[in-house]
Nucleic acid binder design. Sequence first.
DNA 1: TAAATAGTGTCTATGAGACATTATGTA
DNA 2: TACATAATGTCTCATAGACACTATTTA
Lengths: 243, 243
Amino acid sequence: MSRKVTSEEKQFLESYRPGDYPRPSVTVDLVIFTIIDARLVVLLVKRKEHPFKGSWVVPGGFVRVGESANEQGEDLDAAAKRELAEETGLDPERVHVEQLATFGRAGRDPRMRVISVGYVALVRPDLAPIVKAGGDVSDVKWVSMDELKKLELGFDHREIVTTALTRIRAEVESSDVAFDLVPLTFTIPELRNVHAIVLDKDMDPGNFRRKFNRMLEDGLIEQAPGKRITTSKPATVYRFKRK
Amino acid sequence: MSRKVTSEEKQFLESYRPGDYPRPSVTVDLVIFTIIDARLVVLLVKRKEHPFKGSWVVPGGFVRVGESANEQGEDLDAAAKRELAEETGLDPERVHVEQLATFGRAGRDPRMRVISVGYVALVRPDLAPIVKAGGDVSDVKWVSMDELKKLELGFDHREIVTTALTRIRAEVESSDVAFDLVPLTFTIPELRNVHAIVLDKDMDPGNFRRKFNRMLEDGLIEQAPGKRITTSKPATVYRFKRK
DNA sequence: TAAATAGTGTCTATGAGACATTATGTA
DNA sequence: TACATAATGTCTCATAGACACTATTTA
């Protein structure tokens, strides 16, 4: 990460003064998914202030930018994780967070030019996030994909959520990210259900098992001790293999 | 696009004054690919000024941000297309341009906090872009993937180019974007070559033809008049079906 | 006719989807 | 024993990779 900086460049940097042309505000907005009561849900907050006062939006906030060349503030990913922690109280290190896309249409915020870097977060359902209103937010709730259709979202957040949903569906279909939506230990039917819920279509038990077995053979998954107790035949319990 | 704005909100917006906390600069940086002499090449420019004076970087520039709530400046995509036109003289409407990812690590620009929205552009080789130095750039050139390895790139542009390359390879493998790297009319071997060049691996003629025939049946491609003249058996010429 | 490249066909392995069947626990 | 659900097996079809083979043009 260290590069050669000539004394000439050093001098340039010391005497550099940023121009005074206008700059945009930059926010991170988070589409936080989890599974509650066998439904895929997303976290929304209700705006307490204008603009879009009373509308539902996904949580987000301004990226903290430093005052000087040496103090440039927080990384984008760090801003996303900070917002996540503030909104859900969860440890960001235990949550899958990835950058989604950047939304920067002029006029998307009526106050001023705001460019939003969108993020997707996947919360394991067993972490049972406790959400609470606070700050510039009057209400917080988890909303299922069905309920979402009926809601009016502020700013361009409908587009952001739609993009996020498309993304995680693609990732679940390629058998990547579903693990971030399942408890630490899980049975095959449980994992299959998560796929079915996210993709919103039935999954054949036999066919899903085949995929599962391949992941077992590939060493991605291992059996965990115990069995899941149900009202009928107990299922074998598995877990992710720690890398 | 029109939403109800209460008179109360209107009043809020009129009296709204942005806070004076620091804002980042936002740039768009373009990874522009084309194919020249049967090699995948990317456009680089040489910096004439500090920082990274003399280093090669991908072209880019600041997003133009308006002064007021009503004049918010240009969209991100528009900024990318403007930069493309400025650097290559090409009509942006004839070039495939898509957003890649956003790079915003604190310290990535030693002058100040700069957040870069990366874009990928694919230029059809028959558009034969004429590139010329100008502005804050002392030199411009197309660089093959092999040559790229030996070059030292400024800022975090190595990471940006690597991310872009991964993206277009994934898109070509799913048979999407290769069409943007091929002339308006093309033969099967020509299209196969583009795939081979981008993916950097030989493609079997028979197997590739199968994929091609499926696209024909799907109505994606149609036969064009004439034959491609070579030193041996002429090949049938195809083109994209206009949607 | 030879050389070169376009174009075709075939064998095999793999994975997906549909669906029937067996196994093993609880009430 | 009845029932529920876990777990297994099988048939078919679509696609990918490897590779042998035929067709058509130019020199």
